[in-house]
Nucleic acid binder design. Structure first.
Lengths: 209, 209
DNA sequence: TCCTTTATATACCGATCGATACATTATTGA
DNA sequence: TCAATAATGTATCGATCGGTATATAAAGGA
């Protein structure tokens, strides 16, 4: 390639930008905060990532890759829908309270209220949240298909409930609630499972599996 | 009183400021947004309410008076702890989805992430959230004392769980979830009650009440 | 009537916001 | 060797941020 080579690691700079957005949210993360954390100056940021909005979208994509994707895998790899939802709750809590990263979920906390000119980014984050909800819904639907969830269960409703709890856990994590208390809260949500699913999981007929 | 009389209704102006903070959050509500909504200019705002931070604290106090206090009363006036928590959920949903006011809870959504120089306001809001949690805890403790909640129930844990759900409902309301779906989610949370309380409510001995 | 007091309106403060112009430096291809 | 290309550092842009100085207007008290 022609031209002067880049003197910084683009991926590492993006990861640091992600941390700033995670800590401060979208609007409160200033270009000065970002460039300082990334170790570069403004023109380098703009040539490598585009505008602040572009950088943020890429930071969210990186968050999805680093933080969300393993949770998605855990949900899908769990043997039952219940175990999948439990994994979603517990693994999110691990992320929300990890010592080396900011508390709570970037996608949930970065922009709830805000300036009206940032409504597109708010919608972008909302869509991301809905995709997490869709993940849980599909896992419960699969549970019905595979027989570990009663057929009369309502996957939409259950996914909405557990997604709502996860959003609440983000707020609580940001407020400094302990890991232990968050886990206790997740268990409380799971305690509703049988009644939400319309009874305990039907026992598969012997030899069916 | 001496001096030129005020030409605006202080209470009405405060209510409009509250709406702006409710809609945009603390940081994104600019003085221009505020003065325009309040129908006054900056010096009038400063002489009547002090700095932006002072105005915000007073707006939150008004929110507590107008929106929160009736919910507090409903929780405390409910005949049982279960009915009290149910009232807290349902009445919050009414507030979060009311057509004439912004969606979600001002206290929860106004400042989660943000600039580090606003950490005092974040703590102020966090304290407000914790007081809501304490309200639920006390109502459950009273339920134990009055016999409508089993003695082995954990009021701290139950209050934390239902408060977390309410925080999640704020996020969902902001995301545009329907009133019906929010109610369905609240019912899902209430479905965990018996297992959280350690069994259904003990039946009072006949003649005890 | 006139002075004191308080509110109003205009205009502006320094600081910071996101975003760039410009000149310089470093590299590749011809 | 040198033009073309791309990244860097500095310095700055206009807009907006929260917050005020200043002058004027409107009331009460002496």
């Amino acid at each position: 390639m022609r031209g002067r080579p880049r003197t910084f690691d683009r991926e590492k700079a993006l990861r640091r930008a992600m941390m700033v957005f995670w800590e401060r949210g979208y609007e409160a993360a200033s270009l000065e905060d970002l460039t300082e954390a990334m170790g570069i100056n403004r023109p380098s940021l703009y040539s490598a990532f585009g505008r602040k909005e572009d950088l943020f979208r890429e930071a969210v994509a990186l968050y999805d890759t680093i933080e969300t994707a393993p949770i998605v895998n855990a949900v899908e790899d769990s043997p039952t829908a219940y175990a999948g939802i439990e994994a979603a709750l517990k693994r999110n809590i691990e992320v929300f309270t990890r010592a080396k990263t900011p508390r709570g979920c970037l996608v949930t906390l970065a922009l709830l209220s805000g300036r009206k000119e940032n409504s597109e980014i708010r919608d972008f984050l909302c869509e991301n949240r809905r995709s997490g909800q869709a993940l849980l819904r599909r896992r419960i639907e699969r549970g019905i298909a595979e027989g570990d969830v009663p057929a009369k269960a309502d996957p939409d409703r259950m996914a909405l409930f557990y997604t709502t709890v996860i959003h609440g856990l983000s707020v609580q994590a940001k407020d400094g609630i302990t890991h232990e208390d968050l886990c206790s809260t997740a268990d409380a949500a799971l305690a509703a499972w049988d009644r939400l699913a319309g009874g305990p999981a039907p026992k598969p007929a012997s030899g069916q599996l």
